[in-house]
């Protein structure tokens, strides 16, 4: 089994683990966003959706998989970043981009770290927050969302976090395909465009939820 360990601990093996776990999160985000869209249908539909999600046993399995993949993603990014910093101990006095460097590509570790903090806050606030999916309960997930996003502070935190997520995804999406070895003139331009579209849709889609609640209570209060 040394071959497997050699593979996983190699530069390319670590990159593959990062790409595969990242692509899994990309699909998770789509499902998560689609589910949240039930918010716009109404409180009953959304609460029914949260009840299904919190009781379905397949989700318990998925949760474990997600946590493991999250740890893989964090571990590989941390080790790759440490190695990358160590690979250039002495910095250039003058360093100018040849044109391919972007804000996204040069700040993956920073945007990733912000997302990590956000995910923890997000899980504490909602998944493990004070809510119930029991029939007749008043402290529903919908009520919790409405309460949280009545605050301009939380609305701003969430909107900023999903914008950071969008920046991370923009580089991540196309980068993952390159790491899988998929780079060809017949589809790579399409993958790059799809990645940009995907990151914008995810950022706007997730930002729409807090903004929806914030605007709703503004108009209700005003």
């Amino acid at each position: 089994m040394t071959w497997l360990w050699n593979f996983i601990s190699s530069s390319i093996g670590k990159k593959l683990l990062m790409a595969l776990s990242g692509l899994f999160f990309c699909s998770f985000l789509l499902v998560h966003m689609a589910g949240n869209m039930t918010i716009f249908i109404g409180p009953e539909t959304f609460n029914a959706y949260t009840a299904i999600m919190s009781s379905a046993s397949i989700n318990k399995v998925l949760e474990v998989v997600m946590v493991l993949l999250f740890l893989v993603h964090i571990y590989t990014s941390a080790t790759l970043t440490i190695e990358n910093r160590a690979a250039r101990p002495e910095k250039y006095a003058m360093d100018v981009s040849a044109g391919k460097r972007t804000f996204m590509s040069s700040n993956m570790f920073i945007t990733g770290s912000i997302i990590l903090i956000f995910v923890i806050v997000h899980l504490i606030g909602f998944k493990y927050g004070d809510w119930s999916a029991e029939p007749g309960a008043t402290n529903t997930m919908y009520a919790l969302l409405a309460e949280t996003y009545a605050s301009i502070f939380w609305t701003a935190v969430y909107v900023i976090a999903v914008i950071v997520l969008g920046f991370h995804l923009n580089h991540a999406f196309q980068s993952a395909f390159q790491t899988l070895g998929l780079n060809h003139k017949k589809y790579t331009p399409f993958i790059k465009k799809l990645g940009t579209l995907y990151s914008i849709v995810i950022a706007l889609g997730f930002a729409s939820f807090p903004v929806f609640f914030f605007v709703q209570q503004l108009s209700a209060g005003g």
């Binding site: 990159k15 990358n84 250039r88 972007t102 993956m108 390159q178 780079n183």
Partner: peptide, 27 residues
Amino acid sequence: FGNCTNEGECEAECPKAIKMTNIARLF
């Protein structure tokens, strides 16, 4: 050496225009 993060500065600076499609082939 460090690890590629698929940025593409190498391809832009290479005097012989070696393409990053080679890196995908390496993978």
